[in-house]
Simulated scan of single mutants.
Amino acid sequence: MSVLDRFRLDGRTAILTGVGPGVGEHVAKAYAELGANVVISARSRERLDRIAGEINAADGGRAIAIAADAGEKADLERLVAGARDAFGPIHIVFNNAAAGVVYAADGGLWANTDEVWKTAMEVNVMATWRLTELTEADMRAHGKGSIISVQSCGGFTPIPPAVAYGVSKVSGVSANGTDLRL
């Protein structure tokens, strides 16, 4: 018996946002390797198709790709509906999408325009809330679930001039370690 057998996710369905090269891709592949049905999402369809193809080519891998903008409520509704249509109830939500970073070359502090603030809050805060709201009934029905939100050091230590990004990441930090009773 492998130590990883304790972490099997057979038959469970996981939605992952912000899947690109890096954390999202690696977590999606790990979930699939542990037996989960994986629903990967990001704005870039080409990358998603590649990752889903690699997961499905692996022994026992089951993945679908749904292009969606985490900052758009209708896209998140479509993502959850597509996940349920493909695999049934949702067990895991992995919030990895992020937005709102600006750089000094973009104009410094004043590059944090109203649009940057709106995007940062929609993707980094509201998407997490919306996906929780959309999947809570599934998790309640089977008596358990996991909602995981990737945070950033920018939420703990400001990284000027990315003020909007930092503030939006602080919003999620206060929930770290909170036991969400459904």
Results as ranks from 00 to 15, higher is better:
Asp138Arg: 06
Val116Trp: 02
Ala63Lys: 03
Thr178Arg: 15
Gly61Val: 09
Ser2Thr: 05
Leu180Asp: 04
Ala52Met: 02
Ser41Ile: 04
Val173Pro: 08
Ser171Thr: 08
Asp138Asn: 06
Arg78Ser: 13
Asn95Val: 10
Ala68Leu: 12
Ala162Thr: 03
Ala164Thr: 08
Val102Tyr: 15
Ser152Cys: 10
Asp5His: 11
Ser44Ile: 08
Ala65Cys: 06
Trp117Tyr: 12
Arg84Asn: 02
Ala97Cys: 11
Gly100Lys: 06
Val170Arg: 12
Ile64His: 02
Val39Thr: 00
Asn95Leu: 14
Val3Met: 14
Ala104Leu: 09
Asp106Gln: 06
Ala68Glu: 10
Ala42Val: 07
Gly107Ala: 06
Trp129Pro: 00
Cys153Lys: 13
Asn96Ser: 03
Gly22Pro: 02
Gly166His: 14
Pro160Gly: 06
Leu48Gly: 12
Glu136Ile: 12
Ala99Thr: 10
Trp117Ile: 12
Ala120Leu: 02
Pro158Gly: 12
Ser146Ile: 08
Gly172Thr: 02
Ala86Gln: 01
Ser44Cys: 09
Ile90Asn: 15
His91Leu: 15
Ala70Pro: 03
Phe94Glu: 11
Asn124Ile: 10
Ser174Arg: 15
Leu9Glu: 01
Thr135Arg: 07
Ile66Asp: 12
Thr178Ile: 15
Ala81Asn: 08
Leu16Glu: 00
Ala74Ser: 04
Leu4Val: 05
Val167Thr: 08
Thr132Trp: 04
